[in-house]
């Protein structure tokens, strides 16, 4: 199986471990991810005002490029890029006037008609490859690791546009993690917001939001939290140093990309996954759970 792949800005810079592990995991499952030629930033937020059609041009250009390259699917790993691209596509499909304007603005040989499907890797892995194939690939697997699936906002809402999972009771990532052999823990805040871009302006606003999620997963017995969004990963990881100062009983919880866990489960070389760049080092927990070999002394 072959898909055009949209890495996005953060996966090419800060979240290279996400990018590396996403491609590795896909490869192990026989999914070839072909990086979209000349991709550009999705814009990082879906424009919410009706008078700002031009903000759609950025994300729309990626859809046009996919269509021009002959692709019918754009696979995305980053939950935020996925959300923005998918909402843009949905909007263009339902607003022919805007689509026409954008086509005129983009001046490409073939006008875009909404034919590309924007899909998240979770969707491709679980629905195109299937849980059984993932289970078979999961050697050595994640036995011994308790993982909490964290979906956040971008994989779930607005449900009518994203349509990946039930926004109140999502379980696609839970299914994937379970297929990898992890013990999936149930906790109530898998779809709560981590604080997103509020951290840029005021980390103190994001702190209680991230704390709510992390502490609930930790109390549910999770060893690690799995995410699909670099901004969620950052907030939930970076803020923990502050949370430790704020809450006396706070217990740190490593936050990993779901694809990093796939790489571990599949027994791939994880040396490029950037575990050492995480603020809460996941390696001791992963080693203790028996899913990562002994950490070599530096």
């Amino acid at each position: 199986m072959r898909y055009f792949y949209f890495p996005g800005c953060t996966l090419e810079t800060k979240a290279v471990g996400f990018n590396r592990s996403a491609k590795d995991a896909a490869g192990a499952l026989g999914v070839e991810l072909v990086t979209l030629p000349e991709w550009n930033c999705c814009g990082a937020t879906f424009p919410l005002s009706t008078d700002n059609v031009l903000d759609l041009a950025g994300p729309a250009r990626n859809l046009v490029s996919t269509a021009e390259a002959g692709g019918d699917t754009l696979a995305v790993a980053c939950a935020t890029c996925f959300n923005v691209l998918r909402r843009t596509n949905h909007f263009l499909r339902n607003n022919p006037e805007t689509l026409e304007k954008l086509n005129a603005f983009l001046e490409r040989p073939q006008p875009y008609a909404g034919q590309v499907e924007v899909r998240h890797l979770l969707d491709i892995f679980v629905h195109d490859i299937g849980l059984e194939a993932i289970r078979q690939c999961a050697v050595p697997g994640l036995r011994g690791l308790r993982a909490a699936a964290y979906y956040g906002c971008m994989l779930l809402r607005p449900a009518a546009e994203i349509a990946l999972d039930d926004p109140e009771r999502p379980d696609i990532m839970d299914q994937l993690l379970a297929a990898l052999g992890a013990e999936v823990v149930d906790y109530p805040h898998r779809g709560e917001c981590c604080g997103a871009y509020l951290t840029v302006k005021s980390p103190e606003a994001s702190m209680p939001m991230s704390y709510r999620i992390l502490s609930a997963a930790e109390r549910a017995g999770a060893h690690v939290l799995a995410t699909a969004c670099p901004l969620c990963q950052f907030n939930l990881d970076w803020l923990q140093a502050r949370l430790r100062q704020q809450y006396a009983s706070y217990r740190p919880l490593p936050v990993l990309y779901f694809t990093q866990l796939m790489g571990l489960a599949f027994g791939l070389d994880t040396s490029g996954y950037g575990f050492e760049q995480h603020y809460v080092d996941p390696r001791p927990v992963l080693t203790q759970a028996g899913v990562l070999g002994e950490v070599k002394a530096p």
Partner: peptide
């Protein structure tokens, strides 16, 4: 320290 998308969004 921030990921790129945080700035862009912010």
């Amino acid at each position: 320290e921030f990921p790129q998308q945080a700035f862009i969004a912010g």
